[in-house]
Nucleic acid binder design. Structure first.
Lengths: 128, 128
DNA sequence: CAGTTGATTCGACATCCATCGAAGCAGGAG
DNA sequence: CTCCTGCTTCGATGGATGTCGAATCAACTG
């Protein structure tokens, strides 16, 4: 049995994309529509994915380019390639990035909708 | 020796506030100005603070009100008061909320600048 | 003063997480 | 086919994290 098939296929119903729009969580800001228990459970892992210095830089690097090869990401960090892969996987599972293999190389790009949704969520419109 | 003095006093040079503006990290978006190693180390803990369902809901609850007493936050969660305090402390240390004791009660409110900075950081303007 | 209530801190514990090194897979090149 | 390289996955490990319950502190009340 292959353990290898799930790589770029797990676009993983991107936690964010799976949030029903009528819940307003992704379109109205933290303060105006309080995050429910269920939404918090969906959204927290996305923030957690950004909650590591390595992954935050990765997202930033990838976001600055239309797409970026793993072979260009790896040398920017003093980490083993296994660890790099691990972080990229977490970012994928969070729905923040997506990837595609082309020949020997694997290219990553950001999911703008995911970042945008978080941005909107945090854009507080002060109450009272 | 008192271990108790640092409660609301550690407004903690709010990681975000300590980011020099000329670095442009907090005002121009992830993609347009890649996050440096140092910035990532400062910013990641803030995202990490939001990376827990309990804390995410807490921030949301607090953000929805001008201010909120701990005694109103606690019953919303099925957690001991010690755990509630722990989470609130992390949010304080991340610079996301601030608090003040008034008599017996302690009131929390969000730091809009911190949330706004994160929001701006994630507001991607697509490259290329 | 002693007693009560709200909130934080401490100590302990189970779980999770970042990391490495090694092993395995995918796709070319010879 | 056999190598070789890029990337991922696995297994193990030290350190961080969420949780509770108990102890402590702060402030008010009687």
């Amino acid at each position: 049995m292959s353990f290898y098939f799930g790589m770029c296929q797990d676009r993983a119903m991107s936690i964010l994309e799976s949030v029903p729009r009528e819940q307003a969580v992704t379109c109205c800001g933290l303060a105006t529509s309080p995050v429910t228990q269920a939404d918090a459970v969906r959204l927290a892992p996305v923030f957690k994915a950004l909650g590591d210095p390595v992954r935050l830089r990765m997202v930033s690097m990838i976001a600055a380019q239309p797409e970026l090869c793993v072979c260009e990401i790896t040398p920017a960090f003093d980490l083993s390639s296994g660890t790099i892969s691990h972080h990229l996987k977490l970012l994928r599972e969070a729905g923040l990035v997506d990837c595609e293999r082309r020949g020997t190389f694997v290219y990553y790009w950001v999911n703008p909708e995911a970042l945008g949704a978080l941005s909107t969520l945090l854009a507080v419109t002060e109450p009272a």
